[in-house]
Structures are given as C-alpha cells and as structure tokens.
Amino acid sequence: MRNLLAVIDKEMKVYFASPVAYGVLTVFLLVSGYFFYNILTVFIQRSMMMAVQAQQFGGGAPAMDVPALVERNFFGIVSTIILFMVPMITMATFADERRRATIELLLTSPLTHFELILGKFLAAMGFFVVMLLPTLVYHAFLYFYSSPKMALGPVLSGYLGLLLLGAALISLGIFISTLTESQMVAASVTFGVLLILWVIDLSAQAAGPLVQEILGYVSILNHFDDFSKGVVDSSSLVVYLSFVFLGLFLTYRSIESWRWRT
C-alpha cells in the first residue's frame, strides 16, 4: 500500500511537470467546451422552432427534453474526444521509464510488479479525472437554467461510463507503452488501436444482424451508449472491468517477458 502511494505520488509529479499534461488539459477543455456550446445551441434552436410550429398549427407543443438530449449527445462526443486524449496520457507510462533507464531503479526496488502497474494505472486515472472535473461546470449551468429541473441521473451514469471507458482505454494504452522505448511510437500505436475499436463500433452499426450483435458486444464504445442514456447495465460494467483487467494483465506479462529478453 505504501509502495502503491509512492508510485502514484511520483507519477502525478511527473505528469504535472510536463507541458504535455497542460496541453492535453487545455485541448480537451477547449474541444469539449466548444461541443457542449454547439450541442446546446442546436437543441435550443430546434426546440424553439418546434414551439413556433406548434403555435402556427395549433395544439400543444410536443414535449422536448432539451437537457436530456444535450447530455446524451455531449457524452457521446466526449467519449470520442477521449480516444484522442488517452494516448497522450498513457504514452510515457512505461516507454519513458525504459528510455531513461529508470525502469532499472523501479524493477530493482522492493516493489512488486503489481504495485508498480496498479500505481501507474491509478495515477493515469487520477489525471483523467482531473481532466474531466472542469466539465462538471457545464452540467451545473444546464441544471441551473433548466426548468423544470433536469434529472441528474444521466449525468452521474454518464460520468460513470466515462470513467469506465477511460479505465479500459488507459489500461490498453499502458500495455502498449510497455512495448516500446519511444513515447511517440506508443502514442501512435495506441491511437491506431483505439481508432480500430472505433471503426469496429461504426461497422457494427452497418453490418448484418448477427455480426452486429457480436461486434456490439466486442466494441467497448458501444457499451458506452447505455451510460449516456442514464442506464447502468451490469453487463456493460462487466465488459469494462474485464477489459481493464485484461489490459493490466497484458502489461504484467509484457514486463515479465521484456525482463527475460533484455
């Protein structure tokens, strides 16, 4: 436990000493803020148009839950933006330790591999949370101005979904970072793999029913949809947690096999 905290503490220090961290935070907030604003104006305009139409043709205005629509679309977009951010968060985890030979310090210290990997994973999650935190402000605005007050359930489940999706992608990114000494290679490969996951998700939507079902289960992005709608499905939880476990397990094996080869 003490070792785990030491690793997390050091990782956080290294993260926030690097300009990459601030770049990632800035870009994420700019892009997510832009989309939030955009989505919000689109739906407000649409609901106003519908109200105008309803007045012209008589009858009551059809109910349009603007906050719910905004939330759903916003979480959808953020889950895509994350694909671009995660490689930047995980690229250095092991690749940079190898490049500067500090891996020798870590592996010759009385630290278990488990403590080392989990520490790095939790630190990356910590950074990910720091990145998401400011976006809470968007929902606070929406909540403050919504009338009747919007439901908070979908916001919570949306963030839960983002955390799970982030954890899955981060564990994959950390594994890829063990495969090379170069941060750039780690980042590009991670991005490529995440892009493939995204493409699987898209092609699942276009494929025939059977293939669609299979790909739908495999695609980790697909499971995110439920969360953004406010549904916490236990099967999605299981999928994400097993993905995280798989990623960290592969990381462990990769470090072990690297030790035998070096």
Binding site: V7, V14, A17, R100, A101, T102, L106, S109, P110, L111
Partner: peptide, 23 residues
C-alpha cells in the same frame, strides 16, 4: 546502473524521497 536512473523533472529532494519510499 550505468546511466543513473533519474527523473529530470523532479527536484533532488523529491527524487530521493521517492526512492526512499519505494526502498
């Protein structure tokens, strides 16, 4: 090791603290 395993972005104290903890 042949190349001292240092984290350039840390201070000397911060680094030694970290090593003391993991050792």
């Amino acid at each position: 090791p042949e190349h001292p395993p240092l984290y350039d972005e840390m201070t000397v104290d911060g680094y030694l603290q970290f090593v003391a903890r993991i050792k």
